[in-house]
Design a protein around this nucleic acid. Structure first.
Length: 680
DNA sequence: GAGCACTGC
């Protein structure tokens, strides 16, 4: 973190503001004021959307498709489903409202139940993973988009629904993007088969909705006006080479000039950066002149323990200014009240995907215009605010207008498998709103083919019986495959545990300050057979003490994530039972488990070279063992790994020691081809 | 001998 070792003199921040005022209206609707303390009924009527109620109902009665624009909080998400219901539209079935996030689905359902004065789970309910609060009475159902997609596998025409409202469509999650195509097809087929029609309503917070409208048969776009608060946008006069330094300067400039009750939200890219900036801010604020009030600096990012995350909602002590330094978690997931100033570095850490190498890279990059407006909007939730952009207006003009949808930058293997399970006949030409690249589609089909999930004849791709079973699990294809072959190795119980451990955030808690303690305590779990077996040991020890919290603390195990592991495991186990899989445990014979992993993860294998380096067998690229692996200091001849992480080098993470013979026996044809490819 | 944004089934 580049900054002066001594606290800089206060006046340094004063003269010559690096910003200039710009009177340009953002091309997006901004949030409105919060609710006053009045009855729910009165609140409903106070929403601006209430004025357009009749108009909205009339439109929705006639239309098969509609696109609504209006910022979250405008009331569209809570009111439109109620308007539909109250007007008797779609009464023959259920009205579904999808959300990208669980918390949103749950809290919106709670809010609407309150407004309808009903018990949650009756008329109004929600469905998210691990939780289904609905009943036969439920007519307004809030759910995650992933959940509706799961349901579609059993019911591709979505027959129980009369209306599907796809909310937060501008976020363009993979699930929402797949749903666009699924609901469109369901709508068409229901029409053709003379079934009850399906209405599709798309809701977005951004103005660039041409795509949505075009895609849904040029459906009309309805604008919902809001009581938004104006936000003053400032750009830098010159390009900033160091956004960290620029952020620091901006924070203290505002701190010296603005009333202490005006809080600041700073958008940065990651944990390390945030902690460094927080430290620097605290240091500097201690040495400011008396005229400057105190400052309460609060870092915010997802991997922070929940208790510490809650700190952002507490008001700063009287007279102190709250400065929240956050990742883009504050862009959508967490809304903080009282923010008057937003400082936007214009940078974000995001995943990129290379379909050729199959590598995902996490890289710091520019935000899109839409993202920059979303960030700016965070300054105007309750009153007028300001946004300081640490880039020039010219730079902003060159930002991409929209963030590239996730579906165009991720591995599509699960998506393709899911589409095939839905009965989509021609997956390679599926009607995506934003088409992924042909290479990306081809790579995904190729991977599924190698796993034995699909058959290819000419250009037609179809599901094998194995692939059909794989699609039943909420897992990445390579994991569902591993689980499905585990009965052959009599170790399904162990594989269930390992896969559950791998599908949640790490259960290992590694506070850097206590590195030596962590190493010492973890020693007793370490298996020379690799990280999977080590994790299995930790899980077994955790079960032995029945998840005792003190044990977790002493052993640096994240008990929350371990709790999630139990939930995931129970869900996967249920699916196994429904499939009549034999649930055996191989107890001390862990060689079976490793053999099973080799058979499931053979595409992620690497071999030791004579010079001590490693080469991935799939792509023949040089890879290395990540220093966090228990095998880091060992030199195993042959391993399978969970994922590749491209940072300073290409690292394998979560390794398991295997026999080269096992790999050969798992996929002889695949390795013959690889060998041929290498020789030529 | 490194260092990982955020969701979700």
């Amino acid at each position: 973190m580049p900054h002066d070792p001594d606290p800089p003199p206060a006046k340094r921040f004063k003269p010559g503001s690096p910003f200039f005022r710009l009177d340009k209206k953002p091309d997006m609707l901004l949030p409105r004021a919060g609710h006053a303390i009045v009855s729910v009924d009165a609140q409903r009527k106070q929403l601006p959307i209430y004025q357009t109620r009749t108009q909205v109902i009339n439109q929705l009665r006639q239309l098969h498709n509609a696109v609504f624009i209006g910022e979250t909080g405008s009331g569209k998400t809570t009111q439109i489903p109620q308007y539909l219901y109250e007007a008797g539209i779609g009464r023959q079935g259920v009205i579904a409202i999808t959300q990208p996030r669980r918390v949103a689905a749950i809290s919106l359902a709670g809010r609407v139940a309150e407004e309808k004065k009903v018990q949650l789970g009756k008329l109004v309910g929600y469905t998210v993973r691990f939780e289904d609060v609905t009943s036969s009475e439920t007519k307004l159902k809030f759910m995650t988009d992933g959940m509706l997609l799961r349901e579609a596998i059993g019911d591709p025409l979505l027959l129980r629904y009369t209306v599907v409202i796809l909310d937060e469509a501008h976020e363009r999650t993979v699930h929402t993007d797949v749903l666009f195509g699924v609901v469109k097809a369901a709508q068409r087929k229901r029409m053709e088969q003379n079934k009850i029609p399906l209405k599709v309503v798309v809701m977005s917070a951004t103005m660039d909705v041409d795509l949505f409208s075009q895609y849904f048969n040029k459906s009309p776009v309805l604008y919902l006006e809001g009581r938004q608060h104006p936000i003053q946008i400032y750009y830098t006069k010159q390009t900033q080479t160091d956004y960290l330094q620029a952020a620091l300067v901006s924070i203290f400039q505002i701190h010296q000039e603005a009333p202490p009750s005006h809080d600041i939200l700073v958008f940065m890219t990651g944990q390390e950066e945030i902690e460094a900036l927080a430290r620097t801010c605290r240091d500097i604020s201690k040495h400011l002149p008396e005229t400057c009030g105190p400052m309460t600096v609060i870092p915010l990012y997802a991997s922070l323990p929940p208790v510490q995350q809650l700190r952002v909602f507490q008001p700063a002590p009287k007279g102190s200014r709250k400065v929240v330094i956050s990742t883009n978690i504050a862009e959508t997931s967490i809304t903080i009240s009282g923010i008057k100033y937003v400082i936007d570095t214009g940078m974000v850490k995001a995943k990129r995907y290379n379909p050729d190498s199959g590598l995902e890279v996490l890289a710091v990059q520019r935000v899109s215009k839409a993202q920059a407006w979303q960030r700016a909007g965070r300054a105007g939730r309750e009153a007028a605010g300001s946004c300081y952009r640490l880039y020039t207006e010219e730079e902003f003009d060159n930002f991409a207008s929209m963030t590239v949808p996730e579906i165009q930058r991720c591995n599509l293997a699960s998506v393709i498998l899911q589409l095939l399970a839905l009965g989509v006949p021609d997956v390679l030409n599926f009607d995506f709103m934003s088409k992924p690249s042909p290479e990306s589609l081809r790579t995904a089909v190729e991977q599924l083919c190698i796993l034995g999930a699909v058959d290819r004849k000419d250009d037609q791709v179809s599901l094998t019986p194995l692939g059909k079973k794989m699609a039943c699990f909420p897992l990445e294809p390579r994991f569902s495959k591993t689980l499905l072959i585990s009965p052959d190795f009599s170790c399904t119980e162990e594989v269930l545990t390992i896969i559950s451990l791998l599908s949640v955030d790490s259960v290992l808690y590694n506070p850097p300050a206590r590195r030596d303690d962590v190493l010492a305590v973890r020693k007793k779990f370490i298996s020379s057979e690799g990280d999977h077996m080590t994790l299995l040991n930790i899980y077994r020890a955790y079960k032995k003490v029945s998840g005792n919290k003190d044990w977790c603390r002493e052993n640096f195990v994240n008990s929350r994530n371990m709790g999630l592991v139990l939930e995931v495991r129970a869900q996967l186990r249920d699916i196994c039972i429904k499939m009549n899989m034999k649930l055996e445990s191989s107890l001390s014979e862990l060689v079976n488990v490793r053999r099973c992993l080799a058979h499931g993860l053979f595409m992620n294998a690497a071999e030791l070279q004579p010079d001590g380096s490693y080469v991935a067998l799939d792509t023949h690229q040089p890879v290395a063992i990540h220093p966090s692996s228990v095998l880091f200091q060992a030199k195993p001849a042959c391993v399978v790994f969970n994922e590749l992480l491209h940072t300073s080098r290409c690292y394998m993470r979560d390794l398991c020691l295997v026999d080269a013979d096992w790999l050969q026996e798992a996929a002889p044809e695949y390795f013959r081809r690889k060998l041929r490819a290498m020789k030529s």
